[in-house]
Simulated scan of single mutants.
Amino acid sequence: MLHVGRPTVPQLVDLSRPQPQAVTVYQPLEPHRTDGTDVAAAIREPLRLALHRLAGTGVPSSARRAIADHVEALGRTASEGHCVAVFACPERAEAFVLPDHLAAEWRAGDRFDLGPLVRAVSSPQTAYAVTVGEEDWGLWWASGTAPVQAVTSGTRENMASFAGGVRYRLGQLWRALTWSRAFLMTRRSYLSAVARTVRARLEPFDPDYSAPMVVFGPPPLGDQLAARLPWRATVSPHDPATLRTSDIGRTLRGYAEARVRRQLSEHLARISDESLPGLPSRDVDEVARAAQHGRVDLLVYDSTASLRDASGADVLARIAVDVLARGGEVLAMEPDELHRGALDGPLLAHLRADVPDEPDDTWPLTARPGRPA
């Protein structure tokens, strides 16, 4: 099945279960193609390599063919999206078109590789911008260090015509007779149409409106458009005609990075708060056991740390899914985003004081340094 947007926690939990003959592919997409992208074509080469790896471990050709058929049936993505994450096995295939820019990688084994996906869910790196002028507008999208992309654009006449062609033509006639009043009415129609288009394009990827949003536009256009958007938008009173693409990208990356730094500071402050019941822990096995019993309130971990169990599964991603599944909060960071000395290891967690009723024999996982797929 093809999904647009990041997975829900129940979907992450489902994907985290042991799955023999599992293939995982993360593949960057050419963003915002008007005709979308064929998923099977986009991942053809990494899928071929993953199936070859399975063949080398003795997986029968019927199972490999079933995986390829499930991937082929995924169809085409929507036009939006920076990356597709595909999780396939002989029984099914799940794919997520993500707003996040993730590096290309693949893995074949006994579990799906959820590391990059958990990072995308817990620490989004995406920010959006709308540029609006009197006669035209544009929607922009930035993720991580990838170049900012223009998602879509339009003109005032086209948007007003989209909102109602007859109404727009009457408005043109009325403007010729009484300029100022007709101009204001046309502006309201124009901005409302822009806001509806922005919502329709972005809501599948940001349904809770939490991503940073910047509106570039001269007064009063910028403020009037921001008031029509559900995001808590920051208004920048710049004329879009004077902006370069690099200006927009630099601004969006700054807001996305500031959001991550703010989240990290809040998490570290809560973990170190001695007035809260419980205690901090940096021990991987201790945190893993606590996570399975819902005793981890907060988890911060280095998403680049490669710890694998005996089956090759990503230990930190598995812990993170357990924390999320039981109502905890997770922040997956990269080393350059972390404060100096913040972790002193792969993770830092705050454990609640209560003790689980029953011991669990699935931990320790005998974590070991990871190896390439």
Rank of each mutant, 00 (worst) to 15 (best):
E134M: 07
E203H: 07
P204L: 08
W179F: 15
A195E: 07
E105P: 00
A103I: 09
N158D: 15
G165F: 10
V97T: 12
P99F: 03
P204I: 07
D208L: 12
A182Q: 10
L170N: 14
A182T: 10
A200D: 13
R111E: 08
F183N: 14
V194M: 07
W179A: 14
F216T: 01
R156L: 01
R156T: 00
E134F: 08
D206L: 04
S122I: 10
R199K: 12
V151L: 09
D113Q: 04
T186Y: 00
S189M: 15
R187L: 14
F216A: 03
L102Q: 14
D100F: 00
T152R: 05
L139G: 01
F205L: 13
R111H: 15
F205T: 03
T145P: 02
R107K: 12
W174D: 15
E105H: 10
A146F: 04
W106Y: 14
A104R: 15
L184W: 14
A120L: 05
S143K: 04
R201A: 11
D208E: 13
A193W: 03
Y168I: 03
G109E: 06
P204N: 10
Y128R: 01
R167I: 13
F162S: 10
R175H: 13
S143G: 04
R156M: 04
A176I: 02
P204M: 10
S210D: 11
E134T: 14
A193K: 01
M185R: 15
S210N: 02
W174I: 11
G164T: 07
S123M: 10
L177P: 11
R196G: 10
A127F: 07
R167D: 15
R119W: 07
G138P: 02
R199C: 13
P218Q: 13
V214W: 07
R188D: 15
S153W: 09
A195N: 02
S122W: 02
L170D: 14
A182H: 12
V130A: 10
A150K: 14
W174R: 15
A142H: 07
W106C: 06
L202K: 06
A193L: 06
W137L: 08
M213P: 00
S143Y: 02
A195Y: 03
T197K: 12
